[in-house]
Simulated scan of single mutants.
Amino acid sequence: MLPIIDTYTEIIFNTLKLGVITVCICGIIEISLAFYMTFHCVRLKKLIHLILLTPMMVPGIIIVIAFVQLYGETGIITSIICYLFKLEGAPYTFRGLGGIVFVHAFTQYIHFYL
């Protein structure tokens, strides 16, 4: 019985940790974007605003699939980086906590922006 309780405790702790990290990262990204859009951006302000709002129009699962196809080990962006720098393998891995935080940060920032 004890290992099951430890597993559930670890799951709850990891979920809370992910939530706190996601909120902090999204806050940093979006506060920076909001200051830029408010005080510095003059040209193409409406276009940039629309681009920043696109995550609200596209379902989350589609965005996640797009991120995997762009930034995964065989993704388009990763392949371009490998080609430009003549690397034999992917320079980063898109999995684990870092991958989840990356996807959360660039799909959930919109809630701070709104």
Results as ranks from 00 to 15, higher is better:
71 Y>L: 14
103 V>N: 00
28 I>G: 09
36 Y>R: 00
65 I>G: 05
4 I>E: 13
49 H>Q: 12
23 V>P: 02
52 L>Q: 05
77 I>Q: 03
51 I>H: 05
81 I>G: 03
97 L>P: 00
87 L>V: 10
62 I>L: 15
61 I>F: 15
52 L>A: 08
77 I>C: 04
59 P>M: 11
11 I>R: 09
12 I>Y: 07
50 L>T: 11
7 T>D: 09
12 I>R: 02
73 E>P: 08
35 F>P: 01
100 I>W: 00
28 I>F: 12
114 L>P: 01
3 P>R: 06
35 F>N: 08
66 A>H: 06
25 I>F: 09
77 I>V: 15
29 I>W: 04
88 E>T: 10
13 F>V: 11
20 V>H: 03
50 L>R: 09
50 L>E: 11
27 G>N: 07
6 D>N: 14
98 G>P: 02
111 H>T: 02
21 I>N: 07
96 G>V: 02
22 T>Y: 08
26 C>P: 05
24 C>V: 15
57 M>Y: 13
30 E>R: 01
72 G>R: 05
38 T>K: 14
92 Y>A: 07
110 I>W: 05
91 P>H: 04
69 Q>I: 05
70 L>K: 03
86 K>D: 14
80 I>R: 02
107 T>H: 00
109 Y>P: 01
107 T>D: 01
89 G>S: 13
67 F>R: 05
68 V>I: 15
70 L>N: 06
11 I>T: 06
102 F>S: 01
36 Y>S: 08
47 L>D: 07
50 L>D: 13
82 C>T: 10
102 F>N: 00
36 Y>F: 15
2 L>W: 12
92 Y>V: 05
39 F>H: 05
63 I>T: 14
49 H>T: 13
22 T>Q: 05
84 L>E: 11
79 S>P: 06
68 V>G: 04
78 T>N: 13
78 T>E: 11
16 L>N: 03
81 I>K: 02
10 E>V: 03
